[in-house]
Amino acid sequence: MTPDKDLLYELYVLGQLEEPERGEIEEALRRNDPAAQARLRKALETNAILGTLPPPAEPSKALRRRVLAIAEPAPSLMPWNLAWAALSACLVAGLVYTGVQRQGLEADLRARDATLAFLRSSETRLLKTGTVTEPQPVAKVFVNGSQGVLLVASNLAPLAAGRTYEMWVVPKAGGPRPMGLFKPAADGSAIHLRAGAVDLNDAAAIALSVEPEGGSPAPTTTPFLITPVGD
């Protein structure tokens, strides 16, 4: 039976075609074969229309702001007074909450002491993604090569059971390095300090991803809230 070439291109676009047919199609496309390009276009059309079949779903309004933030100029440093105000509010809320829970209080206070010490250091720099007025997920990231990385986030999405957020240092080359796990409070806020020296010399960004409980050695979901590391 003569192979149906249109069908082969449809299978190719759908990700279903195996060797040797797949290689043959790619070779034809590399040659800029007009017939191959025409078949590819036809298959792409069908594929695109298939993408319109699902029932409509409504994204949050915050998503539009997140997408538009893509086109914003590179973030500049945030005024320290605003950062302190936001962070202080988070810390006070955290302390009030933990104050009614005697168990683990000392550990919480130690963590906050470490956070404050980290913030007091003159070497600590603030990176930022988003702006303080945006209601969508926002992260403020403080970095200090000798003391670690502090993330102050809000409006994080609730996690499904068995999932956790994981912070990463994304180097300019090579795979992301894990920077600890955390879960947000019920209101979507989180303060996560990965204490200890961190090599930021080759760091391109700080990012988050959603991972299985216990974390992952490398991101298994698409990282988000990617905060560039720069001066």
């Binding site: 993408g51 409509p56 994204p59 979901t221 988000f224």
Partner: peptide
């Protein structure tokens, strides 16, 4: 945006992940 989101949420079946994607 809406049609892309609708397609993605149909595939991953999670609103939050769909917004990230």
């Amino acid at each position: 945006g809406r049609i892309a989101f609708s397609l993605i949420v149909r595939i991953v079946r999670d609103q939050g992940i769909a917004e990230d994607l």
